[in-house]
Design a binder for these strands. Structure first.
Lengths: 230, 230
DNA sequence: ACAAAAGTGTTCACTGTACACCCATGT
DNA sequence: ACATGGGTGTACAGTGAACACTTTTGT
């Protein structure tokens, strides 16, 4: 950093945040994309984003913008990476700080989808996108895989009550692979952060399967020692 | 992101890069810090940094600034995280993109240390620092630990030729722990990316120990399948 | 009765870890 | 001769991976 009296001579830039919002519909891992209704890139697919204001941090900006576009607060979000290529946005010099967010897909109402011209798109079929947004999604997918193996953030994508099959489907969707049911359940149950409920899910199968909850308290006790979820 | 004609109405900010430069002296993992010769924070410890110009990406800026301050090019560097608190720099709104870099400690000459009022400081004894620079160092240490377990970047901190003891000392310094010599060597040699040279190091011990080199070609063959170094 | 998902154990290979002594050489 | 770091093997426990059948119940 240079001397204070030189600060004014340096170049100033726009700071944007772009949010990679993941959701899970029980089958596929999806990202929430919007079709841009304005230039540049009108009609093209884009992430949700906006500019950071002078009186807010990027984290605060990301929270504000997500609230604006989804009405959701208190969602899991973390900074991913900053994209700084000179001409990534042809309209101006914009540094974009990408965030990735995990939401429960049912919290995002169909009305909002219409209102923002948004759609849930499977990560297996991400279309061409403006600027470097596809690169952002790729990186977010990568980071999600890393994180979900070591931290219990996958639960942010599931309802509060979920069956073990749903949990396995989620991990399979994230890693785009399949796991052996017995091995998966043994491992995930042995961690000891799932609480079995007395209630059964009765729609997805005839027999019905028990609901489980993520047990935050038990997790907090284990947290420091570093857990492998997968 | 908003419509193009609104771009001009958004706030513009200074973008800085700050570099966490790691080095290894055979004993301790160190960071290169400078004592600021200017305000704000004159006389305080600081990372090396500078402002990103309008005509360069942050990566390019980081490379330029590192070259400026160390004369070194072609060094390992990666973007770490962006620090965006409103008042992290009291003089102005500055978004700082932190980079971490790995250099061979002998490449940074003592003259440069004087010239920039710089010093190598053990990561075990990082002093109070300006702004959020200490937080940056903590995060960089964390990231280095993650990376070095999965990628062969530790070698960036060692001379081209190194002994297995030096390599073990490096990993021990990074993780601030000790490893069993036999287990460590078995694991690291079993990866098959170290090339034993005929030459021996004769200063550090009476018996002398063989030099090894990192074998880039062998690594590239194994790269895709994901290697665990530790 | 049958279809469809739930639930449940064992075996084996591999990996990680604990642990202690002899070797070569310069002084 | 001795001090110093270099170099080496084995046993055991824990983890990961492969693998198939029975149970429940709605239709």
């Amino acid at each position: 950093m240079s001397a204070i009296n030189e600060y004014k001579e340096h170049d100033r830039m726009l700071i944007a945040v772009d949010c990679i919002i993941f959701g899970f519909d029980g089958e596929d891992l999806k990202v929430l994309l919007i079709k841009r209704g304005f230039e540049p890139g009108l009609g093209k697919w884009s992430l949700m984003g906006g500019f950071v204001k002078a009186n807010e941090s990027a984290d605060e900006g990301a929270i504000r913008i997500l609230d604006l576009l989804t009405g959701l607060t208190k969602i899991y979000m973390e900074q991913l990476y900053s994209f700084t290529d000179i001409s990534r946005d042809p309209a101006d010099r914009v540094v974009s700080i990408a965030y990735f967010a995990l939401i429960k897909i049912d919290d995002y109402s169909p009305e909002l989808l219409n209102e923002h011209n948004a759609r849930w798109i499977s990560i297996k079929k991400v279309p061409a996108m403006i600027f470097d947004h596809k690169e952002m999604i790729e990186l977010a997918k990568e980071r999600l895989r890393q994180k979900v193996a070591a931290y219990p953030i996958g639960f942010e994508l599931l309802p509060d009550k979920f069956t073990l099959s749903q949990l396995q489907n989620l991990y399979e969707a994230i890693y785009e692979t399949t796991f052996d049911k017995r091995n998966f359940l043994r491992k995930i149950l042995s961690i000891g952060v799932l609480k079995k409920l007395d209630e059964k899910e009765k729609h997805l199968s005839k027999r019905g399967s028990y609901y489980y909850k993520f047990d935050h308290k038990k997790y907090q006790k284990l947290e420091q020692q570093g857990i492998k979820f997968i």
